[in-house]
Simulated assay, not measured.
Amino acid sequence: MKRILLIRLDKIGDLICSMPVDQVSFLEGWDKHWVIAKGLGFVPENADPQRKFLELKKRRRQGISAKTQSLLA
């Protein structure tokens, strides 16, 4: 299965406006996973459809690479 990692580490409005991009027809059947800013998990949890996500602190850049690579492995 093909995978895509969508990263949005900014504000809630930008995340909400970006979420529909994972519903485009050419991504149908893909495993989609979002990386979002810590504290915004309620957005993908309550979206329709519900999204898979990982919350990260914006200021803590160490460990981001390892966590995101594990999602794509």
Rank of each mutant, 00 (worst) to 15 (best):
K2E: 06
K2Y: 04
R3F: 03
R3P: 06
I4D: 01
L5N: 02
L5Y: 02
L9F: 12
D10Y: 11
K11E: 08
K11Q: 11
G13T: 04
G13E: 06
I16V: 14
I16D: 04
C17W: 10
P20K: 09
V21L: 14
V21T: 15
Q23V: 03
V24T: 09
S25T: 13
S25D: 11
S25Q: 08
F26E: 08
E28W: 09
G29V: 12
D31K: 12
D31H: 13
K32E: 15
W34G: 11
I36F: 12
G41A: 10
F42S: 12
P44I: 13
P44R: 09
E45K: 15
E45N: 15
E45D: 15
A47Q: 09
D48A: 13
D48P: 00
Q50L: 04
R51M: 04
R51L: 10
F53A: 12
L54M: 03
L54P: 00
L56C: 04
L56W: 01
K57F: 04
K58G: 06
R59G: 15
R60K: 05
R61A: 05
G63W: 03
I64W: 04
I64T: 00
I64H: 05
I64G: 00
I64F: 01
S65D: 02
K67I: 01
K67G: 00
K67R: 08
T68W: 01
T68N: 00
Q69K: 06
Q69L: 09
S70G: 02
S70V: 04
A73H: 02
